[in-house]
């Protein structure tokens, strides 16, 4: 493998940059020392303390709820947008819709967060809803960018999908929305699953937008972690991060296993 070694070195450096920090963090989560950066022998005490920390557990639960709801809402609306953009032919304002629907992807998070905050405040003044900012407003905010990602994924999948399969269903006597549920949706399932998972991760990850639109009593995990880190990294955070890596690994593994099975079937 004469030609192979520069490639291997490059790949090695790349992977090292990605995974060595993670590995160090995982190791330090088992650190007995109270100081996050000084090794004091093996211990699982920080996992115990983590599970006893109500603030973190509550925040984690809020984050999971927000991510699940935002991903679901975003997937439904994103699918509708993607479908309209690929299957409704050339309608008026199509370009405008496609531009506006995907804008949240490239919009700076600060702008999105601030504008949504202003929206919620004026809505509260005019409509009386949302009465206070909290989980609801975070879900709405996250659903907007989730929708944009799902729309792009669904659009790409639908563009690849043979239109004549849907036409065949119509030809055999099915009307809309029957055709959509019988034929289009099953073909879209892989795209929807990956769109939902991506949305879930993005929502779980978001700090900036959530900070703008959340209210008292509704702190997401990134918000809590960030506020803790400002006071100094504790081994507890390392333990939390390790658990999140395990969770993500399980999710990715499941998705890969499903896709491999679908490929064989």
């Amino acid at each position: 493998m004469k030609r192979g070694w520069p490639l291997l070195v490059g790949a090695g450096i790349g992977f090292a940059l990605l995974y060595v920090p993670l590995a160090i963090m995982v190791i330090y989560s088992f650190n007995a020392s109270k100081l996050a950066s000084v090794w004091g022998g093996w211990s699982v005490q920080w996992y115990g303390e983590l599970l006893a920390n109500d603030q973190i557990l509550t925040a984690a639960w809020v984050s999971l709820k927000v991510a699940a709801m935002a991903a679901s809402i975003g997937t439904v609306f994103g699918t509708l947008i993607g479908y309209a953009m690929t299957r409704f032919g050339r309608f008026r304002f199509r370009l405008l819709l496609s531009g506006m629907a995907t804008a949240p992807i490239v919009m700076p998070e600060v702008v999105t967060g601030l504008s949504l905050l202003l929206l919620f405040i004026s809505m509260e003044a005019l409509l009386g809803w949302p009465a206070e900012r909290g989980i609801d407003t975070i879900v709405i905010a996250h659903a907007t960018f989730c929708m944009a990602f799902v729309a792009v994924i669904v659009q790409a999948r639908l563009a690849d999908l043979d239109v004549s399969v849907e036409e065949a269903a119509m030809d055999l006597g099915a009307r809309q929305p029957r055709v959509f549920f019988d034929v289009t949706l099953p073909a879209l399932t892989p795209a929807l699953v990956s769109g939902w998972l991506l949305s879930f991760t993005l929502s779980l990850d978001d700090l900036v937008i959530a900070s703008f639109v959340s209210g008292p009593g509704a702190s997401t995990l990134p918000m809590v972690v960030f506020s803790k880190v400002r006071l100094g990294v504790t081994p507890e955070i390392n333990a939390l991060a390790t658990l999140m890596i395990v969770l993500v690994a399980i999710c990715v593994g499941l998705a890969a296993w499903r896709m491999a099975r679908a490929g064989k079937g």
Binding site: E167, A168, M170, D171, L172, A174, D182, V183, A187
Partner: peptide
């Protein structure tokens, strides 16, 4: 008249079979 109300059926060039349905389900769809 829309396609679903016409007394004709079409065989597509790409066959356009429903990939997630068995052969029997495909035939039964109409």
């Amino acid at each position: 008249v829309p396609p679903w109300d016409r007394p004709v059926n079409m065989m597509f060039q790409s066959y356009a079979l429903f990939p997630h349905m068995s052969v029997a389900k495909n035939i039964a769809y109409g």
